[in-house]
Design a protein around this nucleic acid. Structure first.
Lengths: 204, 204
DNA sequence: CCGGACCCTGACCGACCGGTCAACGAGGGG
DNA sequence: CCCCTCGTTGACCGGTCGGTCAGGGTCCGG
């Protein structure tokens, strides 16, 4: 179950030819492992076994490749997670599902996820990142709303909601720094273990 | 209290001239904001108002500047935190102090910290990072030992210690992605609030 | 058979990269 | 006075960067 795929479904332009998909998934892996500045167009072309010029036939420039990956990945993450929240369930159950779904998304689309979460968080000149930030805000807004609902129904004690949300997201967003593919606990289980620790507390 | 300083005390070589310190602190800020590959030696020289050649008079190459920052910062972090654990106190109190001290270190040496925590985590060719990794392991070993002690004395329920340690470190290591200087809650308070959430749990 | 659309290529561009080098001026000891 | 050290500089190096360009090959509709 839940094997790793190259890229999330880029439904948008519906112009996802094989070549374009190859370029995107290869670039995602390179961006994730060596960073944006550390990945040259020559590197990408070579890893795809195509000429550098062909990259510019399919994409306007390096930044467009990167933006496609990060924007697409972030948008899909939100929709993926939203689609996996059990409707009508208790808020705490939905928070747990939120975390597990994020873990599963990370496991599936590892490279795109890593490229995305490590990207330009402080770039003064927000390139094409504004739309991506909107999705990111929606993602963060979602976990905050779930926490608020849990407080309202009395499952969670009153506390600093933005900070609690950041605690949850920090645990998830830092996973790529230590979690290995096909080794140790699967990411969704890690996410659920995190939930249990955070929800019930470490205290005996 | 706890105002920000440029660089942690680089006692080591005792050759911390003003110029060297200026180069290190300026480089740390640049590396932290634009990354290693995104920061050129020309950028550093210009930001210091010196010639590029002078950088090579004080340092062998770009990598040495970076290694000095990350290694020095990591080593100092461990010693800083170790020196702030109240001896004889209960393990949970020491865990709280561990987190608060890390928050304070982040606040003081912000740029060096960020450059350090975002550095080459997956570099295949470990440049001069091996010694730094030793300190990093010692830091992670420290929080794990504190958690184990808390379990032994019954303050914390039996659980996956490495995972609990990662939860704590994730919260701290992700702070730089959202915490702003001189705005909002000071970093040590954030760290303590994190501890309270994790230790007592969100559950009502 | 022609023409255009679509993939695809190698040669090439100016800019910038990390790093080197010879030399200069100031200061101090002999 | 000379000479040596030290902080400092601008000119320069080969190589790589992101990006451009003219054109080749192939397939398909007219």
């Amino acid at each position: 179950m839940a094997e790793m795929q190259a890229m999330p479904p880029e439904v948008e332009g519906s112009e996802a030819t094989e070549r374009v998909l190859q370029i995107l998934s290869t670039s995602a892996r390179l961006f994730a492992t060596t960073g944006y500045d550390g990945t040259s167009m020559r590197d990408i072309a070579q890893a795809c076994n195509i000429s550098k010029s062909l990259l510019y036939h399919h994409f306007a420039d390096k930044d467009e490749i990167f933006a496609r990956i990060t924007l697409g990945s972030t948008r899909e993450l939100v929709q993926f997670v939203e689609g996996r929240l059990p409707e009508g369930a208790a808020p705490s159950v939905r928070i747990r599902a939120f975390m597990a779904a994020t873990g599963e998304y990370f496991q599936r689309y590892r490279w795109a996820w890593i490229a995305s979460t490590t990207a330009f968080w402080n770039d003064p000149q927000q390139r094409r990142q504004t739309e991506r930030m909107l999705w990111r805000d929606r993602y963060e807004g979602l976990i905050r709303r779930l926490i608020e609902e849990a407080i309202e129904v009395g499952e969670i004690r009153p506390l600093d909601v933005p900070l609690a949300g950041r605690l949850v997201l920090s645990a998830l967003n830092w996973m790529h720094r230590w979690h290995k593919q096909d080794q140790g606990m699967p990411a969704p289980e890690v996410a659920e273990a995190y939930f249990d620790m955070i929800f019930h507390g470490l205290k005996r």
